[in-house]
């Protein structure tokens, strides 16, 4: 097998970073829409992360991570080229269905920009006309504009503050795309739940099939814990084995958002403890300060 070595790291912003991990078998098996579970170290928690890219020739998978909680911030500090993760398991979940749609919109918001990329590329390879809509809070957070540029027929970048591209939310981008094209057959939206909800509402009146990728709290990722259960229409589904892709018009996003907060108090305690610890180790430096962008360890 592999020992989960990190072979490349790239920092997109103060909070967003990319890790490329050597795992030839997974690179061979991965499909768009799938995810992995990562453990940083032996005492770590298992966190689900969507596969942002895979390279079958290099034998690597790529994860794009936002430093928000204890584990992701700790990884931001410790994961360097040449270091190893304790565990990476996957590819998990049912691969995205790349249908015969002739014209699709691929929407990525924030961190969701990364996982929507393999789908945009797959649609491009299937011969579809691909409209990319990427949303960020501001210009400094924009990444992968070039990668999307290469596989999208049209690309709109939206920023909340208007510092780059269209000022506004991705839903505005969707509205404009629908106004320009009456023949959009499918929308794929990945991002924070509130964004995916907005996208689903934007397309609902037009009856355009809208697929979203859900990332609820999970432990094992293999259907065993049920922590990731989500309401899809009248049914309860497990995002890890029945998803993670679901019909956005059926998803109960309010339920999803409420459940995402269920470990907030303990997560916050863990983060606070980590900040204290990290301060001590780093001699009082702000643990949230960006890691110097120099290579090496």
């Amino acid at each position: 097998m592999t020992d989960f070595e990190i072979v490349k790291r790239e920092d997109f912003s103060e909070v967003t970073y990319l890790l490329e991990i050597a795992h030839p078998a997974m690179a061979k098996a991965a499909h768009p829409g799938q995810f992995v579970i990562v453990m940083e170290h032996v005492r770590g928690e298992r966190i689900p992360l969507t596969i942002a890219d895979f390279d079958r020739e290099r034998g690597t998978i790529t994860l794009v991570i936002q430093a928000v909680g204890k584990t992701t911030r700790d990884m931001q500090q410790r994961c360097r080229v040449g270091t190893r993760l304790h565990a990476v398991v996957g590819p998990m979940g049912i691969p995205s269905h790349i249908g015969k749609a002739k014209k699709v919109v691929c929407v990525g918001g924030g961190l969701g920009v990364a996982p929507v990329f393999p789908q945009a590329r797959a649609y491009r390879e299937s011969g579809a006309y691909v409209i990319g809509i990427l949303g960020f809070r501001s210009k400094s957070l924009v990444f992968w504009e070039d990668k999307f540029g290469a596989c999208c027929d049209e690309l709109t970048v939206c920023t909340d503050d208007g510092s780059a591209g269209l000022k506004g939310l991705v839903t505005e981008g969707i509205r404009q795309a629908i106004a320009r094209h009456s023949d959009i057959e499918e929308v794929v939206a990945i991002g924070p739940p509130i964004m995916m909800k907005g996208c689903a509402e934007a397309t609902r009146p037009h009856g355009i099939r809208t697929m979203v990728s859900l990332n609820p709290v999970m432990v094992d990722g293999t259907g065993m814990c049920g922590g990731c259960r989500v309401k899809i229409g009248e049914q309860i589904k497990f995002a890890c084995v029945d998803g993670p892709d679901f019909d956005g018009h059926q998803v109960d996003f309010d339920d999803l958002m409420a459940r995402l907060g269920r470990y907030k108090p303990t997560e916050k305690a863990a983060l606070d403890a980590w900040k204290d610890e990290s301060c001590r180790i780093r001699g009082g430096a702000d643990p949230l300060a960006p890691v110097p962008a120099v290579g090496g360890r």
Partner: peptide
């Protein structure tokens, strides 16, 4: 090892 949180990272609540 959620029972040993926070020395293990998995929350138990």
């Amino acid at each position: 090892h959620g029972r040993d949180f926070p020395s293990y990272d998995t929350p138990l609540q």
